[in-house]
Each structure stands twice: as C-alpha cells, then as structure tokens.
Amino acid sequence: MWIFITLFAAACQSARTAYQNTLAREAGFLHATMARSLYGLPLVTLYLLAVWWLFGGVSLNGTMTFWWAASACALAQIFATYFMLRAFQSGSYAMGTLLAKTEAVLAALIGLPLLHYTLTFASWVGIGLGVFGAVVMTVKWRNVRHAYRDASLLFGLASGLCFAMTSVMASMASHALSGSIITSAGITLWFVLIVQSVILCSLQMVKMRDIQAPFKHEFRLSCQVGVLSSLGSIGWFTGFALVNPALVKTLGQIEILGTLYYSKVRFSEKLSKQQWLGGTMILISVILVVASTVK
C-alpha cells in the first residue's frame, strides 16, 4: 500500500515543484513557500473529515510528543521549501531538486535513534546509491574543490536536511496519536499546515503591510501549487506513518523522472550525460528499496 501512496505523492510533488518554482519567480520566495500550506489547507481539511468518517477518530496519548514533533515538522518544512527555492534561483531547477534528495539518507540516520526503525542491507545500499546518484547529477567534478562556495549546493543540502527532519517528525507525531494510523497522519498534516499558514501569512502581511497580501499575488497559480501540494503531502504523511520515512523518501526519488521532464521541457535546461547517469543510479536505488521491502 505504501508503495502506491508514495508513487502518487512523488507524481504530485514533481508537478507542484515546477509550478512553485514559477510562482517564486513571479511573486517571491515567501509567497511561494506560503502558498503550498495556505492554499492546500481547504483540500486537506476535506480529506481529514473524510478519513475521520471512514476510519474513525484519534486521541492523544497524554504526552507532549505530538505537539512538539508536529510543530518541529512544520518549521522544518518551511525552511526546507525556502532553501529549495533559493537553490533553484542560484543554480538550476534540476540541481535544486536533486540536491534536496540527500534527505533519504539523512532521514535514515536521524530516524535511527528517534524512530527505532531497522533497515536491511539492501535498503541501505539503495538509499546510499540514490544519494550518490543525486550527487553525480549535480556536482561539477572539475570544480569540486570549490563546491563549498556554490550557493545552490549549500541551499540544496540544507533543504535535504530540513526535509529529512520533516519526514521523521511527521512520523513521530502520527505515532503519538491513538487510533487509525491513516487518520493520525491526516491530523498531523492538518496541524502542520495550520501552523505554517499562520506563520507565513503573518510574515507576508507584515512585510507587505497589507492584510490581504497572501491573496493578491498570482491567485490561480497559488491555487495550483496548493492543490498539488496538499495531494502530495497527503501521500507523504500517510507513507511516513506506515513505514520507515527513509524508505518512503528513497522510493519517492522516482520523482527524478518528472524533474528531468520539467527541467528540459518547461524550463529549457540542457541535461548532460552525467545527469542521465545519476538519474539511472537513482532509479536502481528505487528498485533496490522496493525489492527489499516487498515480500
């Protein structure tokens, strides 16, 4: 089940990231980051009502784990999205997206002490190969000595770290609730979007000195970003609740196909043999992870 959910989430995110990149160019980083939460909230609210009715409600376990984990998830995702959009502007669309894919191995490492998940040898190989494939696609080897000076590299890696924290915190928050794991994931996502919307809308209102600022820029494009983002997030958060987030994010790297398509067709970026090689490595990593988990 988690495999199909993750593939759906990756497809939605691939399209959403392309639209969000365009929105960032038209309306700025802050609005593009805010749109994915505020404009996605109505659809997620309807989804939560549906799963609550279908699968039943949830309750707190009497601890503070849900509140701090979900809040940390919300903040980490804000920074992850911001850093990824900055990577787009300082490098290329493909580079920004692919560097953020280091989140898979980072999620595995962060999740070990926090989630107590175990991984098979094949899973570790798949995760490592996927991250190395992303590096192959993005790093200019002749300039590797000065890679630390590359803004897109630094922003991409920062995005990967924050996305890894997002997935681990989302899993922790969902498992802190008692009841249906599907509903728990929906509650976590809904709470995260509420927190993000309040923070980002407030920042935009203060910056623009206009209470209607969140709704004045590229409304139609913002709605497209919000809908695609909410559909993708529903898939991601459900996947994080069902299995190890590292496996979900590694399989999610199938999104690379969409990234290459949008990079070449939508943004007219040329793809090198090195990038195609890295993409092939990522696809192999996905196959390894899926093969190691399917019984």
Rank of each mutant, 00 (worst) to 15 (best):
M1I: 11
M1P: 10
W2C: 09
T6R: 00
A9P: 01
A9T: 03
A10H: 00
A10C: 06
S14V: 03
A15R: 00
T17D: 14
T17W: 10
L23N: 00
A24K: 02
G28K: 04
F29Y: 12
A32I: 02
A32Q: 02
L41K: 03
V44R: 02
T45N: 08
Y47Q: 06
L48P: 03
L49T: 13
V51F: 10
W53H: 15
W53P: 06
G56T: 08
G57Q: 07
G57C: 07
S59N: 11
L60H: 10
N61Q: 13
G62S: 06
M64V: 13
M64E: 13
F66W: 06
W67Y: 14
A69R: 03
A70F: 06
A70D: 08
S71N: 07
S71E: 03
A74C: 09
Q77W: 04
I78F: 03
Y82E: 15
L85M: 14
A87R: 02
A94V: 13
L99C: 05
L99W: 06
A100W: 02
E103H: 05
V105W: 10
A108W: 01
L109P: 02
I110P: 01
G111A: 15
L115D: 00
L115C: 00
H116S: 15
H116L: 12
Y117P: 01
T120M: 09
T120D: 12
G126Y: 01
F132D: 00
F132M: 14
M137S: 08
T138E: 00
V139K: 01
V139H: 02
R142E: 14
R145G: 10
H146S: 11
Y148I: 12
D150H: 12
A151K: 14
L153K: 02
G160P: 05
F163M: 08
M172T: 11
A173R: 06
S174N: 07
H175D: 11
A176P: 03
A176V: 04
S180G: 08
S180H: 09
I181P: 14
T183H: 07
L189I: 12
W190N: 13
F191R: 09
V206C: 10
K207I: 05
M208S: 15
D210V: 05
K216N: 11
H217G: 09
F219M: 10
S229V: 02
L231Q: 03
L231A: 07
G232V: 01
I234W: 01
G235D: 04
W236A: 00
L242C: 08
V243Y: 05
P245A: 05
L247K: 10
L247V: 11
L247M: 15
S268K: 14
E269Q: 09
S272L: 12
S272N: 06
Q274E: 13
Q274P: 03
Q274G: 06
L277C: 15
M281G: 07
I282D: 04
L283T: 08
I284A: 15
S285Q: 04
V289N: 01
A291G: 08
S292M: 03
K295R: 11
